[in-house]
Computed example of a mutant assay.
Amino acid sequence: MRRLFPIFALPLAACGSQTPPPKSTPAAVSAPLPAPLHQHNDLIGLSANDLVEHFGSPRLQIRDGDGTKLQFASAACLLDAYLYPGQSGGGLPRVTYVDAYRRDGRSMAPQDCAAAIEAH
């Protein structure tokens, strides 16, 4: 009889209460982050093509030696971007200095003027 006991115990063990394995919860799916806003305070280093892409055609273009001044305008302000080639004198001219001012001549932050021009 001892030998039969393990055989009878197997069906009873199968009927015992079994807890189902814990369900794995899927990882939270995060929505993609919105595209970063254009940083108007980071115009230094842009090329003339980059500026035109952001602001449209310049109102004024002045060449002086190896430098170029591009002026962009909105109803509220004017933005002057000064482009020069690299220190070696070659390569694509890039913005090295930016100046912005209101139509009445008062100075203003370049990033505020750039935002006004893009909104125009």
Rank of each mutant, 00 (worst) to 15 (best):
P93A: 11
D42F: 11
L92S: 11
A31F: 01
A28V: 15
R2P: 04
D50F: 03
D50V: 00
R59G: 08
N41I: 04
Y84S: 09
H120V: 03
P34W: 08
A9D: 02
Q71A: 04
R94V: 00
S24W: 06
S24I: 10
A109C: 07
N41A: 13
C77I: 08
D104A: 06
A27R: 13
V29D: 12
L10Y: 00
Q39L: 09
V98N: 06
L83T: 04
G86L: 01
H38W: 15
G16T: 14
D112S: 10
A35D: 13
S47V: 00
L43C: 00
T19K: 14
A75T: 14
D80C: 04
H54Q: 15
A14S: 09
Q71T: 09
R102A: 15
R2W: 11
S17L: 15
P21S: 07
L12I: 06
T19P: 05
N41T: 02
L37K: 12
P93N: 09
Q39N: 14
I7F: 04
N41F: 02
P93Q: 09
L83I: 01
A13W: 01
V95Y: 05
D80G: 03
I117R: 01
L70H: 06
G16V: 14
T96I: 03
G67Q: 10
A100Q: 01
S74M: 08
D64K: 06
Y97L: 10
F8H: 03
T25L: 14
D104K: 01
F8R: 04
I62P: 14
Y82C: 04
F55C: 02
V95M: 01
P36R: 14
T96N: 08
R2A: 07
L60I: 04
G67M: 11
H40W: 05
A109W: 00
R63K: 15
T68F: 01
L60G: 07
Q18V: 09
P85G: 02
K23I: 14
A100C: 01
L60E: 15
A14G: 10
R59E: 09
L70C: 03
F72W: 06
G16W: 15
A76P: 14
A35T: 13
P26D: 07
T68L: 08
D64F: 09
M1E: 07
S17E: 14
I62Q: 15
Q61F: 03
L78I: 05
L43S: 00
H40T: 12
P21Q: 08
S24G: 07
T25D: 09
P6F: 02
T96E: 10
Q111S: 15
H120L: 11
L10V: 12
D66L: 04
P34C: 01
P26N: 07
V52S: 03
C113N: 05
P32Y: 02
D50R: 05
T19H: 12
P20M: 10
R63M: 13
G90W: 15
L92I: 15
T25C: 05
D104I: 11
H54F: 00
P58L: 06
F8W: 12
R103D: 00
Q111T: 07
A73F: 07
K69S: 08
P58F: 02
S24A: 15
P21A: 06
S47I: 05
L83R: 03
P11C: 03
L4A: 14
H40R: 05
P21Y: 05
